[in-house]
Design a protein around this nucleic acid. Structure first.
Lengths: 208, 208
DNA sequence: ATCAAGTCTGAAACTTGTTCTAGATTAGCG
DNA sequence: CGCTAATCTAGAACAAGTTTCAGACTTGAT
């Protein structure tokens, strides 16, 4: 009888991991984040991750079927952490647009503290192919939740969801341009503020 | 004396290429696009590109210092072509927002005809690190020109340029979600139309 | 026509992600 | 406790991007 199967996929849901497996998974994610913090995407080398986390290479691949999977999982991990942090101090802006912009800028400042880590995670996210779609989607949903939280919405309209999607697009792409040195921090700020104005357009009572 | 140097960087500008070099460069780009059309990013294998274009591997790397450089150059090439095509039939919408959305959707339909090629180019673009920044920037500028063309603007305001930047962000990111199967064609259309509304906000006479 | 400098070629080597294998270890079950 | 299926480990092997090198070829200048 199967004792345990497929630890990688959506660890939280399907097969309950044993104590030691959970610990392994943590060690791996920790090593991944650590190496990423040093030198970004390229510095996360599978052999090194395996060694750092005291796990055989084959085992690493059993938990995370590719480098991109690993980094996306690392991002999920970090995102959760970030969501918790953001929740504690809700943004103080007057309008929904202001609050969202403030929240994103706060997240952006957090990323600036670990630019290499940000690089590794974002590059993995955009480089991911179809085989990673479920995990990437999870990240996207988590981001959506964070934004809706900032807007203070319970039941967003389809229009508002569209706006949120566009904000996420802008957020990701702006991050990339910043990480690759093609846009300044100030530029990213402007882009975020610009796109957040879209929210006003979808506010009840906005003409169009 | 140097007969020819660094053919790769911004071939159009710095060192004039000889006839044969220009021909080599064309052959390489052609092979790249061909292979990409077949199987996307992964199918563009440097050894195969070299063989298809009748050039030694070392030479390929002299012209394009990495696979990403090659694919970004391929994208520049395709973009130029696309700009030419789009120019011929200007969009017919009433408002700037409509015209931009129409133009982007037209480009999107073109990409749909060669989804693998689109995959290769877009993945390369977003995966590019700092060493490719100049080339990626060039692509970005070209895209900006196409959008401004569609808007029919001669002298955009800084606000309008911001809107254009956000539109580009959305365009890239929406393409990625489509290519990785996380968004439908219809979804991309909605996102484009949504972000294009930003243009209205920056129209002279828009309150804010 | 000849020469020097630079380019192109072909092939091997190196790097890092990924796969595979044989044997040791672990977990749940009777 | 002992069995059995599954997991974990160590290490080799493979794949594709990238680098390197010696020698053949081009080019522009003398």
């Amino acid at each position: 009888m199967p004792v345990e199967t497929k630890p990688e996929a959506t660890a939280r849901t399907s097969p309950p991991l044993t104590e030691r497996q959970e610990a392994r998974r943590r060690r791996i994610l920790h090593a991944s984040a650590q190496l990423a913090s040093r030198g970004g995407f390229d510095a996360v080398q599978m052999r090194e991750v395996a060694e750092s986390s005291q796990v055989a290479l084959g085992t690493l691949y059993r938990y995370f079927p590719s480098k991109v999977h690993l980094l996306v999982a690392t991002m999920q991990d970090q995102l959760e952490h970030m969501h918790g942090t953001l929740r504690k101090k809700p943004p103080g802006g007057e309008t929904a647009a202001e609050r969202v912009a403030e929240t994103l800028m706060r997240a952006f400042r957090a990323l600036q503290r670990e630019p290499h880590l940000a690089d590794a995670m974002v590059r993995a996210l955009t480089f991911a192919d179809r085989s990673v779609s479920p995990e990437v989607d999870q990240v996207s949903r988590q981001t959506t939740v964070i934004i809706l939280d900032a807007m203070g919405l319970e039941h967003p309209t389809p229009e508002q969801l569209s706006a949120v999607r566009v904000i996420e697009h802008t957020w990701h792409s702006a991050l990339i341009t910043w990480l690759s040195g093609r846009a300044s921090i100030a530029q990213v700020k402007i882009d975020i503020e610009t796109v957040c104005r879209l929210i006003d357009l979808t506010e009840p009572g906005a003409d169009r």
